[in-house]
């Protein structure tokens, strides 16, 4: 077989494969639910009900989507420039560490000053963390996939050290957790009484901001050009190395905001289980969104709904909640194939 580009893909050509990919992911999950002794319809029903079936469930989904929007944006902006940042997990924790350090009383500032200061410092930490692999890539040609992956392990061990050493809460009953943030360092709730904090709004704002950067600025144009063809971009006189480094700073900063938002908005302190792999799930989110910033919001909501729903389903029906991870991973693989098939047709030799 070989692939042949389609000059003018029809509407059906552009819509059917992605739809089939999502359907395929549900099919995979159905078979697995059957194997675990669950009725697929009951399983999906319980997932939907658990994700959006009540005010509590809906708020939980929005809360879960918040860090995923940030990490999804971080991955999307990097992948668009073909900078393979798989280290959003570490960058998230970098933001979280900064929040736990600066938010516990060292800066006696009012919230209006303190929160932006923490957020910007968190972004800086995440940005610098990705700058290292980006520099290794541009200077020495070291593949950033492996270095960012390895940095995830290194940074998590560093956080573990901090939580058992310098950052350990003396009131924590021996648990490795940081001291609670002061009230001034907490992101307030959007509506009093509803368990949803301003981190969610910040995530939406970041998505719109990135969309504007992508669509309306020189940097956005350069990032896409470098991603599509670095050689051509270089030939056209673009500072390719500089663009890659700027992309890295942007991506690392966005991922760090996930850590800031989780600690400041949701948890109030730093623990080693702050993120159940939000950095990695961000890859799925970004790919499902076709790397579009606004698509990231939709994909993050979808992914969060599946995770929150699967947790509730698992408690009710006993089918392991890992079914959500399988569904998303298979959706990712089938979606990249589907996108290819919207532009190419398979020809038999």
């Amino acid at each position: 077989m070989r692939l042949e580009p389609i000059a003018q893909p029809s509407l059906a050509r552009r819509l059917v494969p992605p739809a089939l990919a999502l359907l395929g992911a549900f099919l995979v999950a159905s078979v697995l639910a059957l194997i675990a002794g669950g009725n697929p319809l009951a399983v999906f029903g319980a997932i939907v009900k658990g994700a959006v079936g009540s005010k509590f469930a809906l708020l939980e989904t929005l809360n879960r989507a918040t860090p995923l929007i940030f990490t999804g944006l971080a991955v999307a902006v990097a992948f668009r420039a073909k900078l393979w940042n798989i280290g959003a997990e570490a960058q998230l924790y970098a933001g979280a560490v900064v929040t736990a350090v600066l938010g516990t009383g060292v800066l006696p500032w009012p919230p209006a000053l303190l929160l932006p200061a923490i957020a910007l410092t968190a972004m800086l930490a995440g940005a610098l963390l990705l700058l290292v692999p980006a520099l290794l890539k541009t200077r020495l040609g070291v593949d950033e996939v492996v270095t960012t992956l390895l940095l995830n392990y290194i940074f998590l061990l560093f956080v573990s050290y901090l939580l058992e050493g310098p950052l350990k809460d003396p009131m924590g009953m021996g648990w490795p957790k940081s001291a609670r943030l002061i009230a001034e360092a907490r992101l307030p709730r959007i509506v009093e009484g509803l368990r949803l904090h301003w981190g969610f709004a910040l995530a939406l704002l970041s998505a719109v901001a990135l969309w504007i950067v992508n669509a309306r600025t020189t940097l956005g144009f350069e990032m896409r050009a470098v991603g599509q063809n670095a050689e051509a971009a270089r030939f056209a006189g673009m500072p390719v190395t500089g663009v890659v480094l700027k992309t890295a700073l942007l991506s690392g900063g966005l991922a760090a905001l996930a850590g800031f938002s989780e600690v400041s908005g949701l948890k109030g302190s730093l623990t080693l289980d702050l993120s159940p792999g939000y950095g990695y799930t961000g890859i799925v989110v970004a790919m499902l969104a076709l790397l579009h910033p606004l698509g990231v919001v939709a994909a993050a909501l979808f992914v969060a709904a599946i995770f929150v729903g699967a947790d509730a389903m698992s408690r009710a029906l006993g089918v392991p909640s890992y079914i959500a991870d399988i569904m998303l991973a298979s959706a990712l693989l089938m979606m990249v194939l589907a996108i290819l098939l919207t532009k190419f047709r398979v020809v038999r030799d």
């Binding site: 798989i86 890859i283 392991p320 890992y322 399988i326 991973a329 990712l332 693989l333």
Partner: peptide, 16 residues
Amino acid sequence: VVGIGLTLLATSLTFY
């Protein structure tokens, strides 16, 4: 993308 996707898939299939 395929490799990272496969790692996510194989890991979650295993845990499941």
